[in-house]
Amino acid sequence: MNAAAAPLIQLRGVSRVYGAGQAAVYALRDVDLQIARGEFVAIMGPSGSGKSTAMNMIGCLDTPTSGEYLFEGLPVHRMTRNQRALLRRHQLGFVFQGFNLLPRTSAQENVELPLLYRGADAAARRERAFQALASVGLAGWEHHTPSELSGGQQQRVAIARALVTDPTVLLADEPTGNLDSQRGREIMELLRALNTGRGITIVMVTHEPDMAAYAARTVRFVDGRIASDSRSPAVAPAARAGQAA
């Protein structure tokens, strides 16, 4: 990766205020954050610290009250709602604690959903869904419904759904929160492999230090501000597949 390249994600002096006057609540206060392409970043902090608001900002689900958000140099804070939706659809993949799978729909059909929204034809959707499921270790499970899968397998389907559009950034919000420790470690090993093997940039919110340890960098929020930002010196940002490290 070119060290001189601009950060993939930049928050500059970002604040997010809910309410007004004496009822105003600052979820974020003058946050400056840069994330390079290929990084694996864990965002931590106590309840109400601003970590989820920061994730929503990066995921284009919320907008700053003040400050700037740049994605690949583009001013997201100036985009319309439709432009932000297009950015989410084409650049971002989401993984949630609750899996959010359609219960009566097969793993394959769940993974196809983002491609359906893009207007891809049935054959292309099926092929890419099969590839995405295979990439998370679920080849042969394509026709199983969520009730026929373990919690860890359901989260793998959710990750495959996030990957099927080949996103630049994978946003994971407490991805192991509903899993036992063994399944949680398996999911984290998968996320780390996606980062190091495919160069996908990963931003993960977690309250579990054991899970955050899989990331190369940990950003801690307290009272809407970044309290610490530490890196593992032994782990460099992964190069996107096809790019030089």
Rank of each mutant, 00 (worst) to 15 (best):
M57H: 11
L149W: 14
I226H: 12
R183A: 15
V14N: 06
T80S: 15
P209Y: 12
R126Q: 06
E109M: 02
V222R: 08
F96C: 13
L116M: 15
R240P: 07
L191Y: 07
V164A: 04
S230W: 10
V41R: 00
T168R: 10
V205Y: 13
Q243I: 09
V14P: 07
L61A: 05
G177L: 11
V95D: 00
P167A: 07
V164F: 03
E186W: 05
Q83P: 04
G13S: 11
P64A: 14
E186Q: 13
R217P: 14
L115C: 03
E174T: 08
R16W: 05
S15Q: 02
P237G: 04
I159C: 05
L113D: 05
I226E: 13
Q34H: 12
E148W: 00
A193Q: 15
L116G: 05
G224I: 01
T53W: 04
A215T: 11
N110L: 01
Q153T: 09
E186A: 10
V219P: 01
G224Y: 01
A27K: 07
L102G: 07
R126C: 02
G50I: 07
A193E: 12
L70Y: 13
G184A: 12
P167V: 02
T165Q: 07
P75Q: 04
R118K: 08
R78Y: 05
D173T: 08
V203F: 02
A4L: 15
T168I: 02
T65E: 05
A107C: 01
R29A: 07
A216K: 04
A5T: 10
P167F: 01
E174A: 08
E72K: 05
R231C: 10
P175I: 08
H207R: 04
N195Q: 10
A239M: 06
L194T: 09
G152D: 00
I187C: 11
N110V: 01
I159Q: 03
T218E: 13
E112F: 01
R225M: 09
L170Y: 09
G151N: 08
D166V: 06
M55A: 13
L74E: 15
G19N: 08
T168H: 08
Y117E: 12
E142C: 01
H77F: 02
G21D: 06
M188K: 03
I43M: 15
